[in-house]
Amino acid sequence: MNQWWIAIIAIIVAPIIGGFLAGIDRKITARLQGRYGPPIVQPFYDFFKLLGKSRIATSRMQFVWIYGYLVFMITCVVFLVLKLDLLLLIFLLGFAGISFVLGGFSSKSPYSHFGANRELMQILSYEPVLLLMALGVYAQNGSFMISEIVKPGAAPLLPSLWPIFIAVLLVLTIKLRKSPFDLSTSHHGHQELVKGIMTEFSGPYYALITLTEWYEIVLVLGLVALFWANPLWVGIIIALAAFVLELIIDNIAARMTVGWMVKFTWAVGLVLCVLNIAYLYLIKGGA
């Protein structure tokens, strides 16, 4: 029963944390731009307002996929707090991402079509890095279970997996939709492809996507925190520091092209991961 309670609490608490993080994001961004910025709770206002808007639709399937996006993201968070299999979590995250992409593809709209294709390229960029992160964890721990990472007495991963950590920071930029990788859609009101993959989602469904993104923030920061899971507060501080770092990068970087993103994440992220794993394989002498 205990597990159920942990899962339920996580499902309730995660979006609240995520919402506040989104609020902090907007505040810090505003300050970095010399503005005052909206109140911290602004994302919640936006969320409830969107919930109250009337529904307009361009197809029925787009909403089905949005529910898939939300439910699979929640499942990922549950996997994280229940300390289940990291590799499977990453595959589930893949389903969530694909579900969103399919939502974008589900209406015959040039903008969401474009956004969906770009989102696919983003998946192509970050998915290998995340999978290699799981393999790196396995190389270090001999297990894919998150419970092995956080169990008392387990050594922190960061000292031996720091190249992978840097690669995961790149993933974080993509996942949080921050410049230079806010390609498929961004959190800023105006961008050159209208709103990319989000263009055709409005009202309550936009709210669901917002909710999913809050879960996603918590999830990816949780993954970052895993790099120093003992004691966990160090990991949380590292994750928050990474979050602030992302905000700064967001404000000083310009958006790059899709091709550049794939090349860059593979050239830097994949190579770092590969070197890291090769090193671990050599010193550990195979599985």
Binding site: S59, M61, G104, K108, H113, L120, I123, E127
Partner: peptide
């Protein structure tokens, strides 16, 4: 993931 999602996406593209 990319090539399957791409294909499925084409099937799903409908008018309202």
């Amino acid at each position: 993931m990319v090539f399957w999602a791409k294909w499925l996406g084409r099937l799903l593209q409908v008018l309202p």
